[in-house]
Nucleic acid binder design. Structure first.
Lengths: 205, 205, 205, 205
DNA sequence: GATGAATGAGTCTTCATTCAT
DNA sequence: GATGAATGAAGACTCATTCAT
């Protein structure tokens, strides 16, 4: 158990440095001096630098996946919108608590290794697919308007990612308000509802 | 003028390679062998590798900025929604025509140099600010509902970025339809309009 | 005595690995994992890796030295050729029984440490000197023809070493026949005896 | 051509150092400081340290192979014994002129890489096979006595190798005399010819 | 005695950049 | 202007050995 603790210690330090400097500008020397271990000790716990980085990446993907739960229907279940809200809130809270991990995912993970790129892309694709399924379900149930749910799903995903990027740089004062704002945007867009019929007809063709 | 042509040639080759392999995995050797110039010649045209990369990055940011025009009001001007649509269409067409450049911006540019990161971030912030100003204007004019326009702006920006990422990987069959879908999503969200009032009251608090 | 047994155990395992992989490609990790002892335990029994290797080397040199006995003259002693034959047989049998040790000596011992190189070289030199003395004696006694006994000694030594290298790679079907063949070669060479006088005069000048 | 010269320069220096210190104790640092080139320059000419070493090894094997020519029969050809003598003389002269290369082959090449080991072994096997073929031919022609030519071939090979090892350590005063001595040993062994018949009957069974 | 986590000196290799021709 | 050989700083990784428990 001691061993795991040491490993975790190194991971924690590395996370911090990777988040600030990115993969390439981070040396093994940086990590070991921060973690106060010898060079060889590093390789006792991790196969190599990339291995450690991947582990952090897997960690953030795993943690996020846990927090994104599919919308469930049923008499016992909360309203779909409420489940959505809960998902968003969980993700946002995680991001706020683990800004370094988030930063690694958002800023430093893409484009340095084809394998990892694929893994990240596949994660996002799975999230998008989950959103899309929810939207399809919503259409069936009459909550959601007819639309290209794939495109909508990616719009939603992108919006959330962008907001996450923002709050990982600067913590928002009120996370709940933010979540509400996102929800409202996703559900009703920015147009004044009163004008939507007109818009539909006139502007949106 | 010969010099400029040669320079452009190198830029074109480099763009391709950077797009595929990213900044770090691209060697100067890769570039010069593709461009069929000698090592020393490379440094005749570009200060260094980073300089070349920055130039490509500036190029894509410049091209995008040109295509994103602020919403103008006036008797001569098209409807705001139409201006929006035009912006989106221009951006999407550029992305499709310059997938490599787009890839560089979206996938390979972040996290390898603080300067560049800042420049990219600032570009996005300016775009977001522009969107936000448009939304504020829309509220004033009564088109847009009351909302946190900053959050909405980042949601919109994120959605568009995500879609761009998608189409830079896989070209969509119909760019106009896609633009419409995005517009509709941004304006009216995914909820059925008929339910919005109920939603407003019940679910969205 | 427990300690000696343990030590011998480690030596046995190390012998095997050194024989197969050579000194440099053999890690302490290889040895301890094979011997099922802890890293620290290794250094309880041996000063270091080189020390262990040296011990194996000394062992093989010692064992060989024991088996190579000088030719003794006297009414009680067997014929010189018989003593020669016995020496060869003992060496060959040892080699067959201790192929790993032989391999270490022949293939992996030379060229990694000046000290050891010198020790091995000196061993061979001593063997060569012994052979030379026997030849000189043989000349005195009229068994051996006039020749440069030093050169002849090294030829004999080399021939035997080469054969040893062969049989350590692939066991021969009949060790006695092999010994006879070597003896015959050393005593009478490859030329047909009937031609030797002619040869001496004509070809060998 | 300049490039080849530089390469050869590095090879020459490396040869010297490898011969003295062996592969493992020789650093790239040793080589480049001796050759007065920069670290990167080394890798301009050689893929890596092993590559350079292999090249030297191939070189010595090639040079030796050239000097060992098969015994040819025919009215135009010199006597077989003369051809033998010429082979030996060529090899010995090469060894004397290229002691470092010889040293590399004899002392430092075995046991550090399975591939190279196999290549060297295969070289020796080919030489042995060539000797054996000559002996078989000699038997057919009546020059060579009936014997196990394979064993005899390895004895001859081993003898020559051992002598080579000696002269690479200490140059002999008279190379021709040495060659004669080896030839005589190989042809007629060490026993006094007058006794051979007796020996055949009495001692050699 | 036994353990195995920790150490850090030692090496190889890469690659952006320079500069003499 | 063009070339490409040369440079050397920088960085990853190995592994024999030690030592606190």
């Amino acid at each position: 158990m001691e061993k795991q603790a040491r490993r975790a210690q190194v991971l924690r330090h590395a996370k911090r440095i990777f988040a600030r400097k990115g993969y390439h500008r981070t040396n093994v020397a940086d990590i070991i001096s921060r973690a106060r271990i010898a060079r060889g000790t590093f390789y006792l716990y991790f196969e190599n630098k990339k291995d450690l980085f991947e582990e952090l990446l897997e960690q953030v993907l795993r943690e996020l996946a846990i927090r994104i739960q599919r919308i469930r229907l049923g008499p016992q279940e909360p309203e779909p919108a409420e489940q959505l809200r809960a998902n968003l809130r969980r993700v946002m809270c995680f991001v706020l608590n683990e800004r370094d991990l988030t930063n690694i995912l958002l800023s430093h993970a893409l484009g340095f290794d084809p394998d990892l790129d694929a893994r990240i892309q596949s994660f996002y694709d799975r999230v998008a697919a989950q959103i899309q399924r929810s939207l399809d379900l919503g259409i069936t149930m009459g909550f959601v308007r007819q639309c290209d749910t794939r495109t909508a799903a990616y719009c939603i995903l992108g919006g959330v990612k962008e907001i996450i990027g923002q709050i990982s740089r600067e913590a928002p004062p009120d996370i709940d308000a933010l979540v509400e704002e996102i929800l409202r945007f996703g559900l009703s867009g920015v147009a004044r509802p009163e004008l939507l019929q007109t818009l539909s007809a006139a502007v949106l063709g």
